[in-house]
Every structure is written in C-alpha cells, then in structure tokens.
Amino acid sequence: MTYDMIFTALADPRRRNILQQIATQPMSVAQLADQHNVSRPAISQHLKILTDAGLLSVTPKGTKRIYQINRDGLAPVRAYIDGFWDDALTAFQDHIINQAKD
C-alpha cells in the first residue's frame, strides 16, 4: 500500500538525504552519484523506491532522467491517518451511544 511504501522510502537516511537535495533542485542520477560518491545503480535503486512511493517524479531530458519532488507525495499518508481515526472514533462513539440505549 502507498502509506507503507512512503514510510519505507523515508526510513533510510541516504534516501532522506537524496530527497532533501532534490527538494532544493531537480537532479539527474549522474549528479546524485557524484555528490554521494556511490555507484549510479545504487542511486538508481534509491530513486526507484522514492519514485514508486510517489515522493519523486521523473522527467526525461535528452538522454538524462531528471528527478524532482512530487509536492503531493505525502498527502496519502495524511489522508490515510485521517480516515483511520475517523473510523476508530466513530466506532467508539457508536459503542458508547449503544451502551446508553441499553
């Protein structure tokens, strides 16, 4: 589920660092690999997890792929939690009301 994927994506310090950098300016895999001093495949794997979670979007530019922040990326987390507590509190309220009737 999306909620899980977002939390998993954010659980890794390197990915949070990458996300922070891309929030400052859109970047390519090569730029990120240079800055982090790790291989391009390793960076690509982190970018895939962030993109699959909806936190990044990617735009082809020539032969490069430019990654940028998806500003709506965290909305599913909040919507999920919003609905979660709506369901729980409504059930709590119904229970109390039904007790009062008995």
Binding site: A23, R71, R78
Partner: peptide, 12 residues
C-alpha cells in the same frame, strides 16, 4: 524538517 516545511508545504 526543512524538506517537509519547504517541499511539502502545499501537500495538505
């Protein structure tokens, strides 16, 4: 914290 404050300020 800055990532949330800047990049996702409009998300919700």
């Amino acid at each position: 914290v800055g990532v949330f404050e800047t990049a996702f300020a409009n998300a919700c």
